[in-house]
């Protein structure tokens, strides 16, 4: 009995890990719609375009997103260094969603990223665009076609808070730069959030991929740091709708299963060891520090040795 309980825990932890890493099990495609709204002045335009550009470039280069799954919409396609696929108009956005809804497969990840100036409240919350603005109600309608995908909807615009409630739904993570529609000062959230998704900095558990939750935590911390450094009162409070789903939706280089069966076995063994580390963490409070440290080190050394062995086989499989 005393042996079964830990094993059960270990199994459920391993199961949890498997659920948390769905992309490890199969090729999961990522699709991106990123739009820079109306800027109003050159400094904002540079800022907005830089965020969208960095995100799209990284999606292409790091996450290997196909061009056909990338929609990069700019305020103005002329005079921009951004490789825009179209103008960030309401109509163009609608068409992008429509096009995407025809390409996606169940379980795919759809990342929608908006940056700009926001206004309105409730379902009438909007992002300023050239021509008619797009409201939260519009986006709710367009997202209806993506019911079987994991949607990460990021509105980094000012006054974006009410998008959270307007778009909430199953299989959706809604991230907004502000807590309410009333936080209408210029926001700083977009830049660190994009940096989080497109570099390794936010990869808190160093598993080689950045979850939406990791990116959100990173960006939120960086925003606070910027305000503190500027000696300004924090006027934006980012929110996230579903932290459980946000933990499991990750971005990074696609995982490839090792082709060498020896490597595949090693990877599986290492996964099992990692799950044992996770199980051990759960027992930390009930163990003496010395016993815990000794067991932790033993497991970690084994994990490290597996990685060393995988590397030695030259499979290149990422953990």
């Amino acid at each position: 009995m005393s042996r079964r309980v830990p094993r059960l825990i270990a199994q459920s932890c391993a199961l949890g890990l498997a659920l948390a890493l769905p992309s490890a099990a199969r090729a999961q495609r990522v699709h991106v719609i990123a739009a820079a709204g109306l800027s109003g002045e050159p400094a904002f335009r540079l800022l907005f375009e830089a965020a969208v550009s960095t995100l799209v470039d990284s999606a292409r280069a790091r996450w290997h997103v196909a061009d056909s799954s990338l929609f990069a919409l700019a305020e103005d396609t002329n005079g921009t260094r951004m490789r825009a696929t179209g103008r960030a108009t309401r109509k163009e956005l609608e068409q992008s969603f429509l096009a995407l809804s025809r390409r996606v497969a169940p379980g795919d990840i759809v990342l929608v990223f908006l940056v700009g100036h926001g206004s309105g409240e409730g379902t009438d919350s909007r992002v300023s665009l050239p021509g008619p603005d797009a409201t939260a109600a519009d986006f709710a309608g367009w997202l209806a076609g993506l019911a079987r995908q994991n949607v990460v909807f990021v509105n980094a615009a000012s006054g974006s808070g009410d998008f959270g409630a307007a778009l909430a739904g199953p299989r959706r993570v809604i991230v907004t730069a502000t807590r309410t529609a009333l936080e209408r000062n210029e926001t700083r959230f977009a830049t660190p959030f994009v940096r989080a998704l497109t570099t390794d900095e936010a990869d808190a558990d160093k598993d080689g991929r950045v979850s939406v939750l990791e990116a959100f935590a990173y960006a939120k911390k960086e925003v606070a740091r910027v305000y503190e450094a500027d000696h300004r009162l924090l006027t934006e409070h980012a929110t996230i709708s579903d932290s459980t789903l946000a933990r499991s939706v990750t971005f990074g280089a696609p995982r490839s299963a090792p082709t060498d069966p020896r490597a595949a076995a090693l990877v599986a063994e290492r996964s099992e060891l990692e799950s044992q580390v996770a199980a051990l963490r759960g027992k930390k409070e009930s163990m003496t520090p010395a016993a815990y440290d000794a067991e932790l080190e033993r497991l970690l050394v084994l994990v490290a040795q597996k990685t060393q062995a995988i590397r030695a086989l030259g499979s290149g499989a990422k953990p």
Partner: peptide, 26 residues
């Protein structure tokens, strides 16, 4: 170094640089 590294790997067991350092320390 070991005392500093163990909590790192406790949080991020997949962290390859950390794993390599652990083996070095051993």
């Amino acid at each position: 170094a070991r005392r500093e590294l163990l909590p790192v790997l406790e949080q991020a067991p997949s962290f390859e640089k950390g794993q390599a350092l652990l083996l070095e320390l051993r």
